[in-house]
Amino acid sequence: MANSPEEVAKHVKTYLKVGAALLFLTAVTVWLSYVDFGTHSRNMAIGLTVATFKTSLVVLIFMHMNHERPLIYKFMLFSMLLLGVMFTLFVFVHDDGLIMRGYQAVFGKH
């Protein structure tokens, strides 16, 4: 772990660079959202990929998850698994017609 003053001092530059990268990527996200990629799902996929990359920078560098004790990875792995379940729950309502109903209400039946 980065505990000695010398090691911490070495990291200071990295923190500033990551901060700059995050700001730059924010601007990129905004710009990409105005580009028409054909379907909105593509915009969603691209935008969320950039956001995921940004959060990994925060988690790995700022929250020091690139060099953490195993116990913390175990907590977070468990948490991430449950998160994955929550984010895929919607597939179970597909048969319920929720997605199609919303689509037809907006675009009509064609």
Partner: peptide, 15 residues
Amino acid sequence: VDLVWIFLFPLLYLL
């Protein structure tokens, strides 16, 4: 708190 916002900003404002 920051990383929650990193997702909130595109999801609510942009996409």
